[in-house]
Design a protein around this nucleic acid. Sequence first.
RNA 1: UCCCCUGUAGCUCAGCUGGCAGAGCAAGUGGCUGUUAACCACUGGGUCCUUGGUUCGAAUCCGAGCGGGGGAGCCA
Length: 462
Amino acid sequence: MQDIRSVLRDTKPGASITAKGWVRTRRDTKNAVFVELNDGSCFNGLQCVFDAASLDDAARASLAQVSTGAAVAVAGVLVESPAAGQPVELKASGLTVYGPSPADSYPLQKKAHSFEFLREIAHLRPRTNSFGAVARVRNQMAFAVHSFFQERGFQYVHTPIITASDCEGAGEMFQVTTLDLDAIAKRGEPVDWTKDFFGKRAYLSVSGQLNVETYCMALGRVYTFGPTFRAENSNTPRHLSEFWMIEPEMAFAELPENMDLAEAFIKHLLSWALERCGDDLAFFDKRIQPGLIAMLDSVRSSTFAHMSYTDAVKELEARKDDFEFKPFWGCDLQTEHERYLTETVVKGPLIVTDYPRDLKAFYMRRNDDGETVRAMDVLVPRIGEIIGGSEREYRHDVLLDAMKDKHLDPASYWWYLDLRRYGSAPHSGFGLGFERLMRYVTGMENIRDVIPFPRAPKQADF
RNA sequence: UCCCCUGUAGCUCAGCUGGCAGAGCAAGUGGCUGUUAACCACUGGGUCCUUGGUUCGAAUCCGAGCGGGGGAGCCA
């Protein structure tokens, strides 16, 4: 069986084919019934034309059950379409209805629905234009992540999803337990975590970075790509409780090489989308985010701007009256600051580097000035921070000092410190939020609409 | 977690200073037409989110709760 994508692309008029898929719309005329069939293989559907006179009795009976959402097979001959709107269509001679879809109760109508409504029917929304397109682009972007790293000699490492160390330091964690908490609460006893599954408290990972650094110090160039969990009570269109993150890590690489990798990575992903998702992007450009394709195309051939944190603050101080939060050296960059820098000052992607060390994680390499670290944030218009990374502190004693500064217990990082004791080397890496990339590439506003089944505070349906 | 907005038909929404529940689309029926967000006519369709209060009377005003959206923080 051919999917509709290959029918539209490869099949010559005159060929007999059978197309299977789901009915998007049906339009009746006196002598013919037009059924638009979509099978998800591509954005466009196949128009099937039923000529009332040429149908056998069985097909005519089945036709009564054809309505939006029904799963059907249509047999016929592919012909050039006499009408505008599609180059070819299927002149139907046979019809099988596998699963009807009663029109009086099927939630999806042949009209536009709000994304808020579609979120409530996440099991049906992939059948819409928007979510079908998101799913196909998401698939291509995942593939592009691997193609980028594999072409450059990076090896894919699977870091653990469950972690028993609560020292990853990147936010609130979900706890994992097999204890019967109800029973313990009823007995009014304190919880004895040594009796839990792992013999201690366990959590879902908030980052694979610390683990992947161990493989970086053995394989050289590595990356992770997997689910990540944050129990923060974030209620925004750019945060999820469960999201997918890509974390490359390069041995013997310092911050400039890290920035180059991040820039090449973003450009590779955008090029891939432009080359392989043309129809889907055309839809997003037309209906979701006008100008999207031109924007992606211009970023692909641009050079990312670089700016140190110190210079960024100078830039902000020149316009300080425009901001609710007055910028000063040492302040964390607010969303309004980041957007001003990327959208107004450089009008494109911007990499901000060398932040004050008080603002950043303990593992980032300290600069010689003693005050800043070799951090980098990649900011893009509309999305804000899409990548966060750094050169890592590879000097044992400086790392130990930074941990003490942040009131972390070195004992629980013993294996991480071991990497600095034996064969330590400069290395760098970053994290890219896959769904933030998806927002950037598709133009979709809400991050809950670029992942099939979003998890967020008070939201874990489906 | 904080601030603002919001919850009315299957969907998107209107409903004013409190006084009989509305429109468009969708659905059903009929008509017309190689249609393509089809078109025309008619018909059916309501726990006005829940709860408490004010009032002769609440979709409307007030309190609480729950849900949704936007902004902020946290971050990817």
